[in-house]
């Protein structure tokens, strides 16, 4: 595994764990990286802002409130892409 892909999978795991433990409150419910989160209602509207706060605190990049919708990201994978993009933007 390259360093970049290792980094990516760490982010994905952290997000998936956060969703199952803190949002779904059910550690046994594993969240896959490809399953729809918002369009499926798995993360209800009450918890979208939690996800944004978590991302900001953990990865120090900001997800704007207008981006909390399925058309921007709907999976752990897509959210990870968004985070990596922001991180690179900041570094550059």
């Amino acid at each position: 595994m390259t360093q970049a892909s290792e980094f990516r999978s760490r982010i994905q795991n952290e997000i998936a764990d956060y969703i199952s433990q803190e949002i779904l409150r059910d550690a046994t419910r594993k969240v896959s990286f490809e399953e729809p989160l918002i369009s499926s209602g798995l993360i209800d509207s009450f918890h979208l802002v939690d996800l944004a706060l978590f991302v900001e605190k953990t990865f120090t990049v900001r997800i704007d409130d207008t981006e909390l919708r399925a058309s921007v990201f709907d999976t752990v994978q897509a959210l990870t892409d968004l985070i990596l993009e922001r991180m690179q933007g900041k570094a550059g």
């Binding site: 509207s45 979208l48 409130d65």
Partner: peptide, 8 residues
């Protein structure tokens, strides 16, 4: 309401 719930 949809904006508020994302940005209280």
């Amino acid at each position: 309401p949809l904006e508020w719930v994302r940005a209280p």
